[in-house]
Design a protein around this nucleic acid. Structure first.
Lengths: 233, 233
DNA sequence: GTCTATAACGAGATAGAC
DNA sequence: GTCTATCTCGTTATAGAC
């Protein structure tokens, strides 16, 4: 009996994966706005109504793709951080940035899905919030390690930003100085700004040696969150 | 005869503007991917074939909207720079950044059109390149002014980036140090990263006091391109 | 219980004849 | 420029196979 249920579950997982794979293909070809359940079903040799056994609506399928994308880039960041345990924090920071960029270059449409323009008519549900934070969590962990190690170097916050920085620190990293947490949020957005500009074509005929350019910019971002050059130990 | 031609031309300009206005409405409602000449025509009480007298294809209409958007945000940046002639460079920099963000918040769909995900199947023609650079030109002019005034403070470039930075400087600002030009390109992307994160919802439940947060981040970006605090004169 | 297929809805896009 | 016939879409109700 359990093997029967096991087989069913396996089939279900397989079909679910096939649907998402086909949907990702359509994402690349037509964009998220034109993702169509019927076209996915047609391509899979199914009938559109059958898809509703796996995804209760088009938006839920979109949500699944979004969560998968956040998880994939988050995992890439986590792997990069784990692969460089002995390196100084600035180097680990840069490695994580590189991993994020490499993932984006390898999966441009899924990157656009999560960090590009919002899909018209789609409202991201709560389920996307936690996966969306994975990259930021990795970056924070590197900064935290540096903080407990040898401290961080940041100019004092202006008075106007102090309450907001304190709130952010309380919410996301109570063990870190508010100035660092605020700088982290900005650096996170700026990192994706670099990746988006490259991926969305703004660097066309502007930046040519993009690997080198990005590495340097990522290193300066590490600086901007207070990480110091040189070995940590 | 010239008045007749004048009237014709005036009518043509008016209709062209009406088409673009309606297209912008659709941009907001359905996204650039679903922009349809037919729907625009229907909404204007015209027949779709009539639109082709004004825009030879959907892509040309899209290009017009993109150029308009780049011009609008570029003009906002230029105005902000011109409105603060006496301020120190860091303050002028921040004012320009604020103007860009304010324009983006006021025109989110046009911002998404130019700085968001590429429109599937659309290839940006050469005509978009110059308007796309207007904001960057304004930022560079502020940095240039500071450079001729009292100098800039930037760490030396790593060897690996030196050739690329030299090339960028030769192409865009031969009078400025390569390190500054490279930092400028990065800061430009990072500025839009901050705006995109806010506009595309990534700061949802992360950053609350966004005006203050952005002002501070923009100020730190000024720092990153070498601008120094304090009065310039 | 779990799945797929048929058919239909209301809405909208599209192609072509006229 | 108009009209129509034929597509697309998301979604649901229903019936039947395993």
């Amino acid at each position: 009996m359990s093997t029967v249920r096991g087989a069913r579950e396996r089939a279900r997982i397989e079909v679910t994966a096939a649907i998402k794979d086909e949907a990702r293909k359509q994402l690349a070809a037509e964009g998220a706005a034109k993702l169509s359940l019927r076209a996915v079903a047609r391509e899979l040799g199914m009938v559109s109504s059958a898809l509703y056994r796996y995804f209760p609506s088009r938006d839920e399928l979109l949500t699944a793709l979004i969560v998968d994308a956040y998880d994939a880039v988050g995992e890439a960041a986590e792997r990069a951080a784990a692969a460089a345990p002995g390196l100084p924090p600035t180097a680990r920071w840069t490695e994580v940035c590189r991993a994020v960029r490499a993932w984006a270059l390898a999966n441009p449409h899924e990157y656009a899905l999560i960090y590009g323009s919002p899909v018209p008519g789609y409202q991201a549900p709560q389920a996307t919030v936690e996966p969306a934070a994975r990259v930021a969590v990795v970056l924070i962990s590197i900064v935290r390690e540096a903080h407990t190690g040898r401290g961080l170097a940041l100019p004092p916050l202006p008075d106007a930003l102090r309450p907001e920085a304190a709130r952010m620190a309380a919410d996301f990293a109570p063990d870190l100085p508010p100035a660092v947490v605020a700088a982290m949020a900005a650096a996170w957005a700026q990192l994706m700004g670099l990746v988006s500009f490259e991926l969305f074509g703004q660097f066309h005929r502007v930046v040519e040696d993009r690997d080198t350019f990005f590495d340097h910019a990522a290193g300066r971002l590490a600086h901007a969150v207070g990480l110091l050059d040189g070995p940590a130990h």
